[in-house]
Amino acid sequence: MTKTTVSLVTPHILSVIDLAKQAETGINVDWHLKDAVAKTYADLGHQFNARDLISAFIHGLETTAEQAEPRRKFYSGALRTAAVLATQRLNELD
């Protein structure tokens, strides 16, 4: 069975979305976001198209953050934080 980019990346985006929902309730999720990004790199970083997969992960987080309602600042902030963390590590793939 051939895995697609969507099937590889979506579970990682959804785990960060779950954390963002927890951030809305007042839970400090900073450490958990760092862990989620690290796990994403661990799972996807060994693929031959790792850069494309991580870029899709970052794009998915940024798009979801943009679509969040303005009053959901903690939700969108958590998503943006994860996107920044993932972007900072993107150069490690080279």
Rank of each mutant, 00 (worst) to 15 (best):
M1V: 06
T2P: 09
T2M: 08
T2N: 07
T5D: 12
T5K: 09
T10K: 14
H12A: 04
H12W: 14
L14W: 13
L14S: 10
S15M: 09
S15T: 13
S15W: 05
V16Q: 06
I17S: 06
D18H: 11
D18F: 04
L19Y: 15
L19M: 13
L19N: 02
K21S: 10
K21E: 15
Q22M: 14
A23Q: 02
A23G: 06
T25R: 12
I27R: 05
N28C: 08
D30F: 15
D30R: 12
W31L: 15
W31Q: 11
L33E: 06
A36K: 02
A36E: 02
V37Q: 07
A38R: 03
K39Y: 06
K39D: 07
K39F: 04
T40K: 01
T40N: 02
Y41G: 04
D43V: 03
D43L: 11
D43I: 06
L44D: 01
L44A: 04
G45L: 05
N49W: 03
N49T: 12
A50E: 07
R51Q: 10
R51N: 01
D52N: 11
D52T: 09
I54K: 00
I54N: 00
S55I: 08
A56N: 07
A56C: 11
F57C: 10
H59Q: 12
H59V: 03
H59S: 02
G60T: 00
L61F: 12
L61W: 02
L61T: 00
L61S: 00
E62I: 08
E62G: 01
T64I: 00
T64P: 00
E66S: 08
E66V: 06
A68R: 05
P70Q: 08
P70N: 01
R71K: 14
R72D: 13
R72L: 04
R72A: 13
K73G: 01
F74K: 15
F74L: 15
S76V: 04
G77I: 08
A78N: 10
A78H: 00
L79V: 06
R80H: 15
T81Q: 15
A82F: 05
A82H: 07
A82N: 10
A82C: 12
A83D: 04
V84L: 09
V84Q: 03
A86M: 06
A86N: 01
T87S: 15
Q88D: 12
D94M: 10
